[in-house]
Design a protein around this nucleic acid. Structure first.
Length: 499
RNA sequence: GUCCCCAUCGUCUAGUGGCCUAGGACUCCAGCCUUUCACGCUGGCAACAGGGGUUCGACUCCCCUUGGGGACGCCA
């Protein structure tokens, strides 16, 4: 059969293309995609968008695709591609297809553009960037909307020495209704849209064009993306219509703002996901925090990965932008640390010690450290920072703490305790506790009056987990040695002050 | 400037016309627990942006104002 409609010819061309896995017409499953452009770090806001896409696919048994939008050869970098891949891997948003790279599909875009040129839905434009710039400036000066006026629409003749771009012939009348899953129907007037460039002079496609083709070729059913794309959607829909393709469902999720309500950026703190890993946040905790920005399930605050998948739905995403709160993230991270699997925690705690240059070979097992510290640390970094004395030498005692707790009066009890402890075998918290109890009773002081000096002696500071556990973790030799040093400090203080 | 979106405690949110004297969470404050710090527990401060409608009845529906955000590139 001979195809008479150019549009059908195009559809056949679409079907023949094999860069994506062949279409399976039998099962049109739900499919979402995350499509970042590799022009910087993987932004925390992008991660939330990716999370929503991933969650939606997982929830309804669909597929999740990763596509790298690197059509801008100038700005795309390998470094940034690595950042995206590493970031996705860290947060554990696994994809069923991809990563696809648009830069590998240039022939495909050229093919579709050529067809559009042939059937008149697109045209060559010979205006130079300078001319366009001038046009915009004039329009703004006149108080008009800056937009391309379509002056090349009817042009037949090329211009010497100018490589043309390809523009899409956007309808001049009528309206486009975007039926958004988050916002409901949103109406745009075609009169407010202009003929956008779909192919640059260098033969590479622009964003609006490549998205449409890729989403269609890879059979994306749900386009879930940031709010900032809502205005772009009618343009893309017009291209879809011109090509006779199927529209996906759209869901434009709200953006994440900084604490001050302006667009989230570096000056608000860490925006690169990988920085959160470095600071000792748990990937699950970060996702938990992110999912609660714009989505909720009753009064529940803490969600495991599985719960998120089981409960998430785009229908429950609210349309307003949310501000990023480091305090709440910290709290959620702590909640996750308290509940997390100990193997995962020790793995990441080890990374933190390593970063700090602390050798954990000599000292208590990491799991014991975690048991003692998990409910008093907001991040793993913090946990490592507050437990250094379990591994490193205490060469200096906090001045304030020693002044307050290592007083002449505690010399006798502390010495007695030292001798008690020297006898302990095995070295464990319950026995240590009993020793402190006994000495305190002997000296007729309460537990705290002896415990706190001991804490200062053994940790060099006034804050630690329960003293018996702390002393156990520090170890017998180290503890005795440190108590001796504290005793010497007290002696020096006695002779020094002449009392 | 034009177009689009949004609007409940400081922040994240619940709330889909009567269940609201507006609930939960973070932060902050007070207290309890306690050998320090945390955890945990109890209590407290704190909001429907303003104005018009619709309705017997509006946080909930409609309109306007105001405020915030976004888009208007040979960036995505």
């Amino acid at each position: 059969m001979i195809c008479q409609w150019p549009i059908l010819g195009r559809i056949e061309a679409l079907l023949e293309f094999r860069a994506f896995p062949a279409a399976n017409p039998a099962a049109m499953t739900l499919k979402t995609r995350f499509a970042p452009s590799p022009t910087g770090d993987l932004h925390i806001g992008s991660v939330r968008t990716a999370l929503f896409c991933w969650l939606y696919a997982r929830r309804f048994g669909g597929q999740f695709v990763l596509r790298v939008e690197d059509t801008d050869r100038e700005r795309s970098t390998q470094e940034s591609i690595d950042a995206i891949l590493n970031g996705m891997a860290w947060v554990g948003l696994d994809y069923d297809e991809g990563p696809y790279f648009q830069s590998e599909r240039f022939p495909r875009y050229r093919e579709v553009a050529a067809n559009m040129l042939a059937d008149g839905s697109a045209y060559h434009c010979y205006c130079t960037p300078e001319e366009l710039e001038a046009m915009r400036a004039e329009q703004i000066a006149r108080g008009e909307n800056p937009r391309y006026d379509g002056r090349c629409r009817e042009r037949r003749e090329p211009r010497d020495g100018i490589e043309p771009v390809v523009r899409f012939k956007n309808p001049r009348e009528g309206v486009v209704i975007v039926d958004d899953m988050v916002r409901g129907p949103v109406e745009f007037d075609n009169s407010g849209l202009d003929d956008l460039i779909i192919m640059r002079a260098d033969g590479t496609p622009t964003y609006h064009f490549s998205v449409v083709i890729d989403d269609s070729d890879s059979e994306i059913t749900h386009v879930i993306r940031g709010d900032d794309h809502l205005n772009n959607t009618p343009r893309q829909i017009n291209i879809i219509e011109a090509l006779g393709l199927t529209r996906p469902q759209y869901a434009h999720v709200p953006m994440i703002l900084g604490e001050d309500g302006s667009r989230l950026s570096k000056r608000h703190g860490a925006v690169n996901v990988l920085e959160y890993r470095e600071q000792g946040y748990l990937a699950d905790a970060l996702l938990n925090y992110l999912v609660r920005l714009g989505w909720s399930h009753g009064d529940q605050e803490i969600f495991s990965r599985d719960e998120m998948i089981r409960l998430f739905d785009i229908e429950d995403v609210n349309p307003s932008a949310a501000r990023f709160s480091p305090e709440k993230l910290a709290w959620i991270n702590q909640q996750h640390i308290m509940a997390a699997d100990i193997d995962i925690l020790s793995e990441q705690l080890a990374v933190q010690y390593k970063r700090m240059g602390i050798d954990t070979q000599q000292g208590p097992p990491l799991k014991a450290v975690i048991d003692a510290f998990r409910e008093r640390a907001t991040t793993l970094e913090e946990m490592a920072e507050s437990s250094w004395y379990l591994f490193d030498d205490v060469t200096e005692i906090d001045a304030k703490a020693s002044k307050k707790h290592l007083r002449p009066a505690v010399k006798e009890p502390l010495l007695a305790l030292r001798n008690h402890l020297a006898e302990q075998d095995p070295w464990e918290a319950s026995a240590i506790h009993a020793a402190i109890d006994a000495v305190a009773a002997d000296c007729e002081i309460n537990f705290g009056k002896l415990g706190q000096p001991l804490r200062v002696a053994v940790t060099g500071g006034s804050v630690s987990p329960p003293i018996d556990i702390t002393v156990e973790l520090v170890g017998k030799d180290r503890s005795l040695e440190r108590i001796d040093r504290a005793l010497a400090y007290i002696d020096k203080r006695i002779s020094g002050s002449g009392s």
